[in-house]
Design a protein around this nucleic acid. Structure first.
Lengths: 185, 185
DNA sequence: GATTTCCTTTGACCTATGTCAAAAAAACGG
DNA sequence: CCGTTTTTTTGACATAGGTCAAAGGAAATC
């Protein structure tokens, strides 16, 4: 799904508006394992995934990588609070397979928010959707057994779950790789 | 903090705009233990807490109440996805002490979003802030010990933590009341 | 296609936290 | 105040899931 198509599905932009908005996004090809943002840096770019997938993760005190979120096709990928508040990111952003993304700077998207009321609305809707999804994950993590959490994962990220290393999924679900391996049997 | 003051802190509304916006909010006094929304109902109203505090919670299969969030002074209280998507709420909204709130209907706030670009922006900013806070909770729940989770609670809700029953906090933090009681010693 | 590196599974054992039950303390209502 | 209800603490025991270690598989690299 291209950014052009995506924008139109949420808010009824005119073609002229769409063309203007789209012109601020830059198409980029990024290869597997590339980091788009490093933990500690201020996230200056928002990415829209046209093809591929990514994750956000951080490295904890014991040097273990903890996956925080997965980003699939047709989603915006960023370290949300770092990007919107311009504070150091708690997470790395990593591309998990060779991908095609559209990128836009904080400055440009703020200009678009200011220029188009509809764009501001789109921002609000996208943020609301993200909020809902995080609440879902929270409920899964907080009150469900390891088995149920894996079921949540299958429902939320059906296309991603079989394409990434087990360890990434395990840490995303707040359990060890060994436990997840046992559950899957 | 009144809704009037609050609105001005995030976005530079003119006095005329503020008066118009404020006129759509209705001041209400609600008493302790009152439910503003029932699990399963569609949440039609957004509340701003001027005085007091509340929580969202649900009753699980075993009849146990699980607190999902606390709402303090100067915050919007609602079942976010129920309100914004007009779907049945997973949660009850309960006022924990006698409180003063400002309420606004979905219809009215949507009109304000449509009428004022700045209001739409405010909606986006408030949603983004909520998103950030939920991510913080998620990190606490997912990867911290019971002790650390209580520390997170003290940091995030310093004014609430000593005013509500232990059981509410325990379920919010994803642990049992007994565990929390032992931690506090 | 052999070698190295990465990923997944398995086993044995351990620990933080849950469960159940009951006592103690605090808050509430008449 | 006194009795009732609600909330908190404490104890004994159970268990889901963690930790550590090692062996298989798979897949990338030369």
């Amino acid at each position: 799904m291209s950014i052009y198509e995506f924008l139109g599905t949420l808010v009824p932009f005119t073609n002229k508006e769409l063309n203007d908005i789209q012109s601020h996004f830059k198409k980029e090809t990024v290869s597997k394992s590339q980091l788009l943002v490093n933990q500690g840096d201020i996230c200056k770019t928002l990415y829209f995934i046209e093809q591929g997938m990514g994750r956000s993760f951080y490295t904890n005190e014991n040097g273990k990588e903890i996956t925080q979120w997965f980003f699939g096709v047709g989603k915006f990928m960023t370290s949300a609070d770092s990007f919107f508040q311009q504070t150091p990111s708690l997470y790395n952003l990593e591309v998990l397979v060779d991908s095609v993304v559209f990128s836009i700077s904080k400055k440009d998207i703020d200009q678009l928010f200011a220029k188009y009321h509809k764009m501001e609305k789109l921002g609000r809707l996208v943020t609301t959707e993200m909020l809902t999804k995080i609440v879902n994950k929270l409920n899964a993590i907080q009150f469900q057994t390891a088995k149920e959490r894996y079921d949540y994962m299958l429902a939320e990220f059906p296309d991603i779950v079989h394409q990434v290393p087990l360890g990434h999924i395990a840490s995303y679900l707040g359990m060890t790789q060994e436990t997840l391996s046992r559950i899957r049997k």
